[in-house]
Amino acid sequence: MARRKKIYEGKAKILYEGPEPGTLVQYFKDDATANNAEKQAVIEGKGVLNNRLSEFFMTGLGNVGIPTHFIRRLNMREQLVRQVEIIPLEVIVRNFAAGSMAKRLGLEEGTALPRPIIEFSYKDDKLGDPLVPEEYVIAFGWATQQDLDDIVALALRVNDFMSGVMFGVGIKLVDFKIEIGRIWDNDYQRLVVADEISPDSCRLWDMETGQKLDKDVFRRDLGSLTDAYTEVARRLGVMPSNATHMPKPTLIN
């Protein structure tokens, strides 16, 4: 098999040139990072789980009319996606206070917010992905005011879908972050949800016990990250109901 051209490698994924123009192959790694990569580990099976879970969420979004870059899953670790121009922002949607918001505002984790709150952070690992106001986004040309209005509307639609899906399986969607990409058709721009949606990018708490089922398990040394992600996949029907752990995955290059 011909060696594929690597386009980009991040902390959790690798992007390769796709089989057709305008496509990429997105490969999910087992690497886990936290606190701006100050904490790192390789967790067996994590990439397989995130691939399957992101496929589930992206497919669901597409089914309710929310555009994404996802085309189809190729194998246990890879997806075929549309090549997009990524807007250099992380779009954070918060339903409950947790993590950095709770620390900044002195709120108890789990405090319900009066409405979903959307924040933007500038995508730059060296700077620690700092929060930025809308004025910065527009002034530095990362997005226009119309883009921001469309991004907010898109993020709230994703929140409605994700919250409902999670509520149905007894999980509270505390917060999540997404990335947005531009697809161009001549001079016409379309904004789509890109990157991934998985427990890596969400805070997910069991509604009855408050047990964390997301990357905070790794950040805060709360147990097995694979077990937490497997539980999310099991509840959503992505894995068999009797699954308790992920077998060692087969790497497909």
Rank of each mutant, 00 (worst) to 15 (best):
M1S: 14
M1K: 12
K5W: 04
K11H: 11
K13H: 03
G18I: 12
Y27K: 12
F28I: 08
T33W: 00
T33C: 02
Q40F: 11
Q40L: 07
A41R: 10
A41Q: 11
G47Y: 06
G47S: 10
R52H: 12
L53V: 14
T59L: 10
T59E: 14
G60T: 05
N63K: 15
P67L: 05
I71D: 10
I71M: 12
R72E: 15
R72M: 09
N75T: 05
M76G: 14
Q79F: 08
Q79W: 05
V81W: 00
R82S: 11
R82E: 15
E85W: 07
A97K: 01
M101I: 15
K103R: 15
L107T: 07
E108K: 14
P114L: 06
P116L: 05
E119W: 01
F120W: 05
P130W: 08
I138L: 10
Q146H: 04
D149L: 00
I151R: 00
A153W: 06
V158Y: 01
V158F: 06
G168S: 15
V174G: 00
V174C: 01
K177F: 08
I178H: 01
G181M: 04
I183F: 06
W184K: 07
Y188L: 11
Q189H: 08
R190F: 02
L191E: 02
E196L: 08
E196G: 08
S198K: 08
P199R: 03
M207S: 12
K212R: 15
D214M: 00
L225E: 03
D227V: 11
Y229N: 07
T230V: 15
E231H: 09
G237T: 11
P240F: 08
H245Q: 15
